[in-house]
């Protein structure tokens, strides 16, 4: 049963498969090798379910089980990801401050309450302000680092070292870095508040913007810049007329991603904010520790909608991989 009949049989078999599997396989039919793959796949965990297929009627049934397995896993993952978000959205519509399941009516009053709450609005504005500065600053710094890493005429090991230092936040646990910056800010006398938070966020987003831009920068044709230079453009002109326009989608995506990262950042802010400023994640975290309420649900929905919209927009300019 496991033996796949090689050779001429393959053709008719995949035809069978398509008709047997209906719409999904049809959707995949146009995609060449991948469409072949679509019915023919497997994973260790498929084997358990696969046994049923072996008892069933031949290879078509077997493929269906396999396909069913993947479909189930992916569907479960999607429910796992988006179910809780939908649940919070549903519970944010409750009329009372402590929603019960199911909710006792539908009301938008808690959204109004959130948007007129002085503390929430102030923390949201703080987060947006920090986010804008960090998005632009982080992208600019990332572009500089990317330029040197990709096109720099420094020695290879120097460029490697630059990449490594910039990548530090990816490898060192955030709590350690955040504590380090907190201790450092305290010892140097920088204190806590807006400036340390801004610097901390810039540092935190730098690897993301750098590597996003490095990836795009590396695909640019170096000879375009050379050609512009040969035609007499200065370095500034090359940057302005050749490199930046070609990088524009990646730069825009980087701005949006950096904003989302900064807007959502919690732990670094937690160590650096002191008592002077409150960002939205800090404000929400403080309230969550007090207790779950409809107010928080409505605030959560607003935050998720804003960051989700930004990320979706950003991925239109540059795929996340």
């Amino acid at each position: 049963m496991d033996l796949h009949t090689p050779g001429p049989d393959g053709e008719s078999e995949s035809g069978d498969r398509r008709s047997a599997l209906g719409t999904d396989a049809d959707a995949g039919a146009g995609t060449g090798a991948d469409a072949e793959g679509s019915a023919d796949d497997n994973d260790g965990r498929a084997v358990d379910t696969g046994r049923n297929g072996r008892l069933g009627s031949g290879r078509v049934g077997f493929d269906r089980v396999r396909r069913q397995f993947f479909r189930t896993v992916v569907l479960c993952t999607l429910v796992f990801f988006y179910g809780p978000i939908l649940a919070v959205g549903y519970l944010s519509l409750a009329p009372n401050g402590q929603p019960s399941v199911p909710i006792e009516g539908v009301s938008l009053r808690w959204y109004v309450a959130v948007l007129t709450d002085a503390r929430f609005v102030e923390s949201a504005l703080t987060s947006i302000g920090i986010g804008v500065v960090v998005a632009i600053g982080g992208t600019a710094l990332g572009a500089m680092a990317a330029h040197v890493i990709v096109r720099g005429r420094l020695d290879r090991w120097v460029r490697g070292l630059i990449g490594l230092i910039v990548a530090l936040p990816l490898f060192v646990p955030t709590v350690v870095l955040a504590l380090g910056i907190g201790v450092f800010a305290g010892r140097v006398g920088l204190g806590f508040g807006l400036v340390p938070v801004l610097l901390g966020h810039l540092f935190w987003v730098l690897p993301f913007s750098t590597f996003l831009l490095t990836a795009r920068y590396a695909t640019l044709d170096a000879e375009l810049s050379e050609a512009a230079r040969d035609l007499g453009a200065s370095n500034a002109e090359v940057a302005r007329t050749v490199v930046i326009p070609l990088l524009a989608p990646a730069l825009l995506a980087s701005v949006l991603f950096c904003f989302a990262l900064s807007f959502n950042e919690f732990l670094v802010t937690f160590f650096l904010a002191g008592s002077a400023i409150t960002t939205m994640p800090l404000e929400l975290f403080g309230q969550i520790r007090i207790g779950a309420t409809t107010f928080l649900n409505a605030a959560s929905v607003l935050v998720l909608v804003v960051s989700g919209a930004l990320a979706t927009l950003a991925s239109r300019f540059e795929a996340p991989v």
Binding site: D24, A27, G28, G30, T31, D34, A35, G37, S38, D41, R67, F70, V74, T77, L78, F81, P84, I85, V88, F257, A260, L261, F263, N264, F266, M280, P281, L284, F285, I288, A292, L296, S300, V303, L304, S307, G308, L310, A311, T312, A314, S315, A319, P320, V321
Partner: peptide
């Protein structure tokens, strides 16, 4: 397995939570 034309959309849907606020997601 995923048909190529849905692949990017599926990928974005699956990694979108990366960009959402994790404090809120935990909540």
């Amino acid at each position: 397995v995923c048909p190529a034309r849905y692949r990017l959309a599926a990928l974005i849907t699956l990694v979108l939570p990366l960009w959402l606020n994790y404090v809120v997601l935990n909540y």
